[in-house]
Computed example of a mutant assay.
Amino acid sequence: MSVAQITDEEKEDLLLSCRYGDLDDVKEFVNKYGQAPLAEVRDENGNTVLHMASGNGHIELLEYLLPLVPPSLLSAQNESKSTALHWACVNAHLPVVQKLVQFPGGPGVDLIDIKNAAGRSPLAEAEMAGWDEGAKWLVQVMNLEESGAKEVDEEVAAGASTQDVEVEIQDADGQIARMSLGRSDQAPSPDKPASSQP
């Protein structure tokens, strides 16, 4: 059955069920209409079922939805160009952030580099929200190849003690994070830049 045969009220109910984490109602919708509409239904602002579940921290619902939607929905942007990951970061939902980034077959760490209309990545949103735990986790998993990690590798290869190596990493938004390498018990520590606006 196509989305055209689903009423606007049913679409709205699906999105509300995702917003409030009502897994039973979402399952009922899928039983009635199949999984294809899950990827197509949007609200007036372009938000998807993943935006609603992720922004509100509904991990069980997210775990149900992810295998049913195309992986491209993870990078779907709403009218403000925010992804579900942006919303999870703004609202400090670490298990959701981890699930979105680590979902097999999905965009993976590339999600961290997607910028919204304000020019901010999910990492920048986490930092702006003051959510250090999430920002640290994102820095740990993000692709560091373009941000000077080679220079650190060269220092380590040259014999520098990895316990003493401190790295400053600049993300795609110009945000700076500091990390100590060589000790597994130490996590990266994002710092706010001197100026929050470029």
Results as ranks from 00 to 15, higher is better:
Met1Ala: 12
Met1Phe: 05
Val3Thr: 15
Val3Lys: 11
Lys11Val: 04
Lys11Phe: 02
Leu14Asn: 04
Leu16Trp: 11
Leu16Gly: 01
Arg19His: 05
Asp24Thr: 12
Glu28Gln: 01
Glu28Lys: 05
Ala39Met: 09
Val41Phe: 04
Asn47Arg: 14
Asn47Ala: 07
Val49Glu: 00
Leu50Lys: 09
His51Cys: 10
Ala53Pro: 01
Gly55Cys: 09
Asn56Thr: 14
Leu62Ala: 08
Tyr64Val: 12
Tyr64Thr: 12
Pro67Gln: 15
Pro67Gly: 12
Pro70Asp: 07
Ala76Val: 04
Gln77Gly: 03
Asn78Ile: 10
Ala84Pro: 00
Leu85His: 04
Cys89Val: 13
Asn91His: 11
Asn91Phe: 03
Ala92Ile: 09
His93Glu: 02
Leu94Glu: 00
Pro95Cys: 09
Val96Trp: 09
Val97Phe: 01
Val97Ser: 03
Pro104Asn: 14
Asp110Tyr: 09
Leu111Ile: 06
Ile112Trp: 02
Asp113Arg: 13
Asn116Ser: 07
Ala117Thr: 10
Gly119Lys: 10
Ala124Lys: 01
Glu125Met: 12
Glu125Cys: 10
Glu127Met: 14
Ala129Tyr: 02
Ala129Leu: 03
Gly130Ala: 02
Asp132Arg: 13
Gly134Glu: 05
Gly134His: 06
Leu138Glu: 00
Gln140Lys: 15
Val141Leu: 06
Val141Pro: 02
Val141Cys: 04
Val141Asp: 01
Met142Leu: 11
Glu146Ile: 14
Ser147Asp: 06
Ser147Cys: 13
Glu151Val: 12
Glu151Ala: 11
Ala157Cys: 05
Gln163Trp: 14
Val167Leu: 13
Gln170Leu: 14
Gln170Thr: 14
Ala172Gln: 06
Met179Val: 13
Leu181Trp: 11
Lys192Val: 09
Ser196Val: 06
Gln197Ser: 04
